[in-house]
């Protein structure tokens, strides 16, 4: 029992999970029905379900972002890719003769995904072949990409009327929101691909010491292409979910600032921005913390004026608590308590 507690305390995930629990408790106090999950119209219904469904796009992007950050990079263009994929999909559906058919939706999704893959390859090209710093390379696409999305929609909001498309964002399968299922699949794919194969280790190697891994024969170039493309793919899928959720392509606002939320989720989850070791489970916890934070603001009724200060407080708290200095201080505090216990056991 004691070792379990000790391991829990020293786990990097302890404080994010603790913060999650605290936020949930605050929500329950403000709204006792927060934790209730009922079945309505044949599907699950409740605040927790909303958090999972609304947080799914951000989680998907955060998964892609985790791998990019692990290689010591960053991808600021994910929001723009979200907007582009939504714009492309809606344009295709609007331009087709039968917007409600599954074939049209499938084509739209496929084209959007292919375009995103190309954009990911472009980012990978800038970073690995030309050698531009990731923050600037992806900043280019972040600026120009939103322009491209607005070009496709000509600045208007394209509303589509297509039940299969709408289902991606707000539909249910087996009682669970489809968006959550998609997120789960992507999480599983990423986890399996990186942890069951050598891929994860190679990614970490590139991030920890690019020069040493180059000399060890690791093909950094291919890996970088892969992670940026995967990140763009994640952004496209998230963009499709976001767009489907409102059944309209809004090139201006879709995915705006989502890259910040995703990076926050990754960092709260324990992955360092300096690259190297990463944790997909940590990212999951981080994403849940952020989404619960957003929901807490609405449930508790925090005035929009104070929302940002509240966010700052939570983020600061998590970071300070997670830091090695705090862990060391807690360790010292626990060690001061321990000798008494050891004496009791000995006698």
């Amino acid at each position: 029992m004691k070792t379990l507690v000790a391991r829990a305390f020293s786990s990097r995930l302890f404080w994010p999970v603790a913060m999650l629990v605290v936020l949930v408790v605050i929500n329950v106090i403000a709204f006792p029905g927060f934790l209730s999950i009922t079945v309505k119209d044949g599907h699950l219904f409740g605040s927790i379900i909303d958090i999972l469904r609304n947080g799914a796009p951000m989680l998907i992007i955060a998964i892609g972002m985790t791998l990019v950050i692990a290689t010591r990079g960053i991808d600021l263009s994910v929001g723009a890719v979200c907007a582009i994929s939504g714009a492309v999909a809606c344009s295709i559906i609007l331009g087709s003769s039968d917007p409600g058919s599954i074939t049209t939706v499938a084509t739209a999704v496929a084209v959007a995904v292919v375009i995103a893959l190309v954009l990911g390859l472009w980012n990978g090209f800038l970073v690995s072949v030309i050698g531009i710093q990731p923050i600037i390379a992806t900043l280019v696409l972040m600026t120009a990409g939103r322009g491209i999305a607005m070009l496709i929609t000509e600045g208007q909001i394209l509303t589509v009327n297509s039940p299969p498309f709408k289902a991606i964002g707000s539909g249910f399968a087996l009682g669970v929101p489809i968006a959550v299922l998609i997120a789960a699949v992507i999480f599983a794919v990423a986890a399996l691909l990186t942890r069951r194969t050598a891929l994860g280790m190679l990614i970490e190697a590139v991030g920890i010491n690019p020069e040493a891994s180059r000399q060890a024969g690791v093909r950094a170039r291919g890996l970088l292409f892969a992670v940026y493309t995967f990140c763009a793919l994640c952004a496209a899928i998230a963009g499709l979910i976001l767009t489907a959720n409102q059944t309209a392509a809004d090139a201006n606002n879709t995915g705006l600032f989502i890259e910040l939320d995703a990076i926050l989720a990754v960092v709260i989850g324990g992955t360092s921005l300096a690259g190297g070791r990463y944790s997909l489970v940590g990212t999951l916890v981080g994403a849940l913390v952020i989404q619960t934070l957003v929901t807490t603001v609405y449930t508790v009724g925090i005035s929009p004026i104070v929302t940002m200060v509240f966010k700052a407080a939570v983020v600061t708290a998590v970071c300070l608590l997670q830091s090695p200095a705090t862990t060391a201080a807690i360790g010292r505090w626990r060690r001061r308590l321990a000798p008494r216990v050891a004496v009791e056991v000995a006698s």
Binding site: A30, F31, G33, F34, G46, S47, D50, N54, I157, L242, N245, Q246, A248, D250, N253, T254, V294, T295, V297, Y298, T299, G301, P304
Partner: peptide, 23 residues
């Protein structure tokens, strides 16, 4: 009873209304 910002967007309006309808 409640006044929150939806940022003038559909997604914002939907998310806020969802939460407020429950509480």
């Amino acid at each position: 009873v409640a006044s929150q910002t939806g940022d003038f967007t559909r997604a914002g309006g939907k998310q806020v209304t969802e939460a407020l309808l429950k509480s």
